[in-house]
Design a binder for these strands. Structure first.
Lengths: 342, 342
DNA sequence: AAATAAAAGTGTACCGGTTCCACTTATTTT
DNA sequence: AAAATAAGTGGAACCGGTACACTTTTATTT
């Protein structure tokens, strides 16, 4: 392990002052003779010099790091989001500190503490819904906070990027209704989440528009984690007059719900038609290929990163920005046309 | 946006020196009277003070950040790895800087540059295979480098954590042979990768042990990214005497290969038996449920993090550590028993 | 050729913590 | 009661860059 050269070592070796080396390091910060510049560059290469980000950050807490706080990354939806966010950030020279909450507000609060100490310029997060005080503090500190996929109603001043949950659920439900389904179930996120509520609202509107009876038994909320999703699916199937179609609108639990359906030996779409909120590659590989609501993850990522860096670039507009991108209903083979039997 | 209080603000407000505040901040670094401690703590809370990591890092480049450099995170295997690494790191109070290379060595080199400037204490990476000089430099600088899943033969002094690729491929192939298959194909990673080579070697050994003819046409290498995986699958199926069984041993391209098989209308396991290296949840949901080689991602993550922090903790043992964890062959329904027809 | 302007380069305070060392004030030891 | 030891606190240098104010060199103008 060699001792790390500093800017002063470089300056001395090149026979110039540290100020000049700093200028070479930051083009545009001041004039440097071409000959000097190349000499300094040579010395830096020979010495294996690399400026330390920590030292640079000390002067002005710079917009070079961004926090990405997700529920977990094993979920394909979040994984793809993380992938896109990282790519988008990298393309702007920004680094990403990845953290997970496991939907645990205690863990979330710890992570937020770390992000504060690191003075990240922005945070992109899927909030658990608690820790409102800390989120507020973060904003007061000048950190750009962006909620993605979900939001917290009691924090209306935070930027939000998500799909149009209402419209997505509405159109998915409408599609099922148009195929003759009258008993349509929906499994959505917790009622405390905006995501969950909006999707249910869209579902209701579609049911009403189709003139279908709204049975509260057909509406299920499931927590983002744990067995709740599977339980909801099982419960839905065991009611007296079970649904012939199901919208799985809890993005985080799609796999869990499908596993339960599969184990129950449900024939899709024979017994049950299904539309899910998840556009993972494998939804196409299943038998039958699943009809899905495709979330434009790249757009979610791009807008999130943009907003998370907005204030930094002086583009802060007093009001919080809410971006709703359109989701796409991709029809495949998991929805059956129901014959009129009654 | 409020101005951020510094340690001096706290000191002044509490009527003590900065040294005392620092001691309160770092318990064990020196004596502080209980009364003073609580007074300082109160002031910190009132002022909303949070120490800046950047300033702290300046003194001693500390082991508080770890770089995770993956090919991409949209791939479920890497996503789950990232998830576990982050959890493991968090449990040790370490933060994770996530980066992706897209398997592009140019991008990789840029990312490595950033990691050097940040003086991360350790790096966990799936290397592209190039940039050997930079990896060496990283190590000289005292950074703990750990390759996970793959390695680079020309860098034997780097720690490696992976599954036992040879044995995994051998046992998967042996299972197929035991089911009466004689024409067994394999799609593995590029020949330049250790992963790819080891798996092929395991395959060869199993073929030989079973007394089966080794046809080079049955062995395909596919790059980790791009359409190569799918092309390899198509090519395999169109040879004169096509395989009746296939080992998809290119973890990164499993989905791509399966998609191609699905589109080609191949009946699994009727026409083709399949074993894949991927234990994503959805492999169980497919029809038929896929027989898989399950990689213990949690173990890979745990060992990686441990090694990446080893030197920091003074546990550096001159020699590089190579950890091979056992993978598990999970039999499900995608392998058919072949009747002897010849 | 003198005057003026622009370019190149230097010295040093500063960012916000940490830590060594010196110093003062209790507490023990003999 | 004097000396030795420990506890509590403060002063200031330091980490490695950045940037401002200023001096020196070179180029341009008339």
């Amino acid at each position: 392990m060699q001792k790390q050269p500093t800017i002063r070592d470089v300056a001395q070796a090149a026979g110039v002052s540290v100020a000049v080396v700093s200028r070479v390091l930051n083009p545009g910060s001041g004039p440097v003779a071409a000959a000097t510049r190349s000499r300094v560059n040579d010395v830096m290469k020979n010495l294996g010099y690399h400026p330390r980000t920590a030292a640079r950050e000390l002067k002005y807490g710079p917009p070079t790091t961004l926090g990405l706080l997700l529920a977990d990354v094993s979920n394909p939806f979040f994984a793809r989001l993380a992938d896109q966010v990282v790519q988008e950030a990298h393309s702007r020279g920004i680094q990403v500190l990845l953290m997970t909450t496991q939907e645990d507000d205690q863990l979330e609060s710890e992570r937020l503490g770390t992000l504060i100490e690191r003075r990240v310029s922005g945070i992109i997060a899927t909030p658990t819904g608690n820790n409102v005080a800390i989120w507020k503090q973060l904003q007061d500190l000048g950190t750009d906070v962006v909620f993605v996929d979900r939001s917290i109603p009691s924090l209306p001043e935070v930027d939000v990027v998500s799909i149009d949950n209402f419209e997505s659920a509405r159109s998915a439900t409408a599609l099922l209704a148009a195929h003759g389904h009258r008993r349509i179930g929906i499994i959505s996120g917790p009622a405390s989440s905006t995501t969950g509520r909006d999707r249910i609202a869209g579902y209701r509107q579609a049911m009403e528009a189709a003139g279908l009876e709204q049975d509260e038994l057909l509406i299920r909320h499931a927590a983002f984690r744990g067995p709740a999703g599977g339980d909801a699916a099982s419960a839905l199937l065991s009611i007296e007059d079970p649904p012939t179609a199901l919208v799985v609108a809890n993005t985080a639990q799609v796999t869990e719900v499908l596993r339960r359906l599969s184990h129950a030996g449900i024939d899709i779409p024979g017994t049950l038609s299904v539309i899910v909120f998840d556009d993972s590659p494998w939804t196409e590989l299943m038998t039958p290929a699943l009809t899905i609501v495709r979330q434009p993850i790249d757009l979610l990522a791009r807008h999130s990163v943009q907003l998370a860096l907005a204030n930094t670039q002086g583009k802060s507009s007093g009001k919080p920005t809410v971006i709703r991108v359109a989701a796409e209903l991709v029809e495949r083979s998991s929805v059956a046309r129901l014959q009129f039997s009654k």
